[in-house]
Amino acid sequence: MDKLTFFTDYLSASLRLSVPLAFAALGGLFSERSGVLNIALEGMLLSGAFASAAGAVLTGNVWGGMLLAITVGGIVGLLHAYLCVTLRVDQLVSGLAINLTAAGLTSFWSRILFNSGQAQQLPGIQAIGIPGLQNIPIVGSLLFNQDPLIYLLFLLVPFITYLLFRTSLGLSLRAVGEYPRAADTAGVSVTLVRYTAVIISGCMAGLGGAYLALVHVKFFAEGMSAGKGFIALAALIFGRWHPVSTAFACLLFGATEALQLRIQAFNLNIPYQFLVMLPYVIALLALIGLAGKSTPPAALGIPYIPESREQ
């Protein structure tokens, strides 16, 4: 393998590994921009991964799996919204409860449905080359010969940016997350916005989980999200709740993970465990470096109580 192919292969792997993170982080962006803290991303990713495997087995079709993952992710989002918005449960506690429950339920059902606790080899999705563009050296294979979900992500990032900063829907979302009292006075339903945002975050994280199961490894393994939801959350903070910089933060974490899979090729004597550790270390260092510089939405984590005089 010559150096150039190695390099493009590496970039391509980085891109693929950042996809689940990016779906989860961009989903989390909706939720957190609306003021609902979302550490449940981990449980949503895991539920999505499981649902996609179950859906793919039941329908014999990748897209059936994807659809079920989005649906189940949305239901988990609905639960998080109900707990946080309607019942006003502490948002951290709700997220933790969802993560623990998701871990338990998915491993229970996977042992029942897939016997050994691992789904058999699942159908994958094919890369679709874009005629003409895919023949450009380096960039072509990297950007224009990928699977449809990567294209979807390429479209989502500018779309979400536009939605957030250029439309009245985006304005309502940001207003609810920054100053719900004002949004409420202006006639925006804080409850509706927060429910919608958290459900969207569930759907997107569910899709990220589906990518993890159907594209990365083609099977479901218990606990396979392995903290990726938390890394997505770190990417969101690192990206300062902006879609473009959040997507780049995810790419950075994806590139770190790809490094771990490829470093053996360099024949460097770095223990495998240190490479697995790397994304978590970088996420930690990123959080430390950004401390005090990354300002979350003002109402993040605070339930909105219409009848109270605070806020």
Binding site: V89, D90, L96, A103
Partner: peptide
Amino acid sequence: VPVTVVYAIQGLTVLFIAISFAIER
């Protein structure tokens, strides 16, 4: 019965205790 049912029960316990906090408030 798969051992993992216990993990589900533990997670659900937290979920229900969280709900009970809210009801209590």
